[in-house]
Design a binder for these strands. Structure first.
Lengths: 212, 212
DNA sequence: GGGCCTATCGCACTAAGGTGTAATAGCGGT
DNA sequence: ACCGCTATTACACCTTAGTGCGATAGGCCC
């Protein structure tokens, strides 16, 4: 059985806020609910910290000395960190909230924060994150393996996942069908998939498929 | 060659705003750019109107007498209308913008609206909409066809797209492999796909695949 | 030069998929 | 009772895919 509602203890919450009062209150709130919580006063402190790979959520103040919350969000996105982010802010405006939401934030709550709303947003984010994490890991592993393919193998793969027959692949690449079979076999073993269906599925989801 | 930047004339813009001045100004702006524009004073007027199936964008005031913009957004979503929506508002707040963005709005601009920003948001939305429209149509067609499958054919399809072999499908369903082949053949012809790869791809994207 | 990777091709054999025909059987509606 | 849809199976035949072994050849690095 897969756990549909992971226990709070299996999740990590990161709070980044330079306002001592708010930060401590937030930590207290989630700690009392049984979550593991770590807090930071600045974005760079958070970045320096070694993050574990538990499902989790980042609670982020928008205005902070140094790097702002929005900037931190962009930096994490650039590094393909998929940690969900809930913003809280004292002096935010609409364009700022829109920008954050466009960039994938889970929620954007003005201070004073409604504690119940915050807990709900974070809980939801963590549940979704927990559910998608193993899928994400599967895709990362697939991408990693696809990277080990040679150029030719990659070409063959792109045609295979579009349903092109070995015979046609051979003609299109100007090689023998037997050779296509060799490449195709390597693609399957190198990527570790055990069926064409899985290869297509993972190619789709990982966005590895090349355009026409 | 597929048109990457569709001409404005190939797109339809709907403006819904009870404020005469703003509405007329918006219409003028986009009309002068060559877009086809239709405007409405209330949500219900828009809903009564026959929409053509061109790519387009809805520019929506949040506060209106009768149905609000947010409510209209929800109603359209409930009817699976995928028209992109750009909100403009005079008295919006952060929670409202967040709600709209969570519900899939393209942008949320406070009045007085920066004309350039509005044009950019709408143009982007239309381009994206135009690009995804034929894919959406393809998926709708696929879903429609999958609905014509019999129960057994559907069961077989679910196993096929997971890479299960005919032999194993037969054992799992307690029938002969020959029978599986018959069902499988019907699945392919009824859904109109011409390869396993395409079946898997469309099943993935259309969300037809059943869970374990 | 020797080792390693990549790419190529051929052959033989096995397994799996796809098609067409035909037949049986139950179920629901006219 | 008859028709149509669904489901089932069998048989025959052909096409694809997959595997294992061997072999050649060019490029690159030490």
């Amino acid at each position: 059985m897969t756990t549909k509602h992971p226990k709070p203890a299996d999740a990590m919450i990161y709070v980044v806020d330079d306002d001592d009062l708010v930060r401590r209150a937030t930590v207290r709130t989630f700690a009392s609910l049984g979550f593991q919580v770590t807090s930071f006063q600045t974005a760079s402190e958070f970045l320096d910290h070694d993050r574990c790979d538990l499902p989790g959520c980042l609670i982020l103040d928008v205005q902070m000395p140094g790097q702002t919350g929005i900037e931190l969000q962009q930096e994490l996105a650039a590094h393909h960190v998929d940690l969900p982010i809930v913003f809280i802010t004292g002096h935010g405006d609409i364009p700022m909230s829109v920008k954050a939401m466009k960039a994938g934030a889970v929620d954007f709550l003005p201070k004073p924060v409604d504690e119940q709303q915050l807990v709900q947003a974070v809980s939801q984010a963590i549940n979704r994150h927990a559910e998608t994490r193993h899928q994400t890991a599967e895709l990362d592993e697939f991408r990693r393996r696809v990277d080990t393919l040679t150029k030719r193998e990659h070409e063959v793969m792109n045609l295979v996942v579009r349903g092109v027959l070995n015979k046609q692949i051979a003609r299109r690449l100007g090689i023998a069908e037997d050779t296509v079979k060799v490449h195709r076999g390597r693609v399957m073993s190198k990527t570790g998939v055990d069926s064409l269906a899985e290869l297509v599925r993972l190619s789709e989801r990982s966005g590895v498929a090349a355009p026409d």
